[in-house]
Write a protein that binds this DNA or RNA. Structure first.
Length: 203
DNA sequence: ACATTAAGTGATT
DNA sequence: AATCACTTAATGT
């Protein structure tokens, strides 16, 4: 069975819906580090890992990761409203996406109960995620933000090793490298992580 | 050996 | 928590 039908099956979609998605969509391979071009398509992650970022001029803030079997709630709302919403998605690992034209979503939502549920559910999930990130940003607890960021990384990639520099993390969290270094040092003292050059390991 | 890049640290705001 | 002004350590050429 193809990866696509596995994913669609896991969503609990009707047979008819599955075949519509399969015939209407196209495969997009995105190698690590590449930015997902903004099209009017809804991306379904088949495998790999993507990072969703909020951009505001020079600044950018990490929002959440997109794992395989997920879709980007942001791209649904952004595309429906026809704006780009200052969101950008980049591949953290080599990834494969199934791109489905947004134009078809309308009819699917009305036609297939499973799809309606699916849309609601992805929104619900993202909303919850965003609330927790919002909390930590608003209350400026940088130490918690960093640790959450590391945990997100670990969970999303299924890997205790995080290959990132302090500077990269600082960019994702929109803070300075110095701050990241200090707080990571703290986490190291608390035996929560272990540090190497270009690499952090979760304990 | 030298240059570059990553990470550590004290002092100041 | 951010910035500055370094120092030290690791890596590439």
């Amino acid at each position: 069975m193809s990866r696509l039908s596995q994913v669609l099956n896991a969503f609990g979609f009707e047979k008819e819906l599955c075949s519509e998605i399969e015939s209407a969509g196209r495969m997009l391979k995105l190698s690590s580090g590449k930015i997902l071009p903004s099209t009017s398509e809804m991306p379904i992650v088949l495998n790999g890992l993507l990072k969703v970022i909020r951009k505001e001029g020079e600044n950018e803030v990490y929002l959440y990761f997109l794992e395989s079997g997920e879709t980007c709630a942001m791209s649904i709302s952004c595309c429906l409203e026809g704006n780009n919403g200052g969101i950008s998605v980049t591949a953290e690992e080599d990834s494969e996406l199934w791109m489905v034209p947004m134009a078809l979503l309308d009819s699917w939502v009305t036609k297939f109960p499973s799809f309606r549920k699916f849309v609601f559910r992805t929104y619900q999930n993202r909303f919850d995620e965003l609330l927790t990130t919002l909390d930590s940003v608003v209350f400026t607890k940088m130490d918690e933000r960093i640790y959450k960021y590391l945990l997100d990384n670990q969970e999303a990639s299924g890997n205790f090793v995080i290959n990132k520099t302090h500077a990269q993390i600082a960019q994702d969290l929109n803070t300075s490298r110095v701050v990241v270094s200090r707080l990571l040092k703290q986490l190291e003292k608390e035996d929560k992580i272990e540090q190497f050059r270009n690499r952090i390991e979760m304990l």
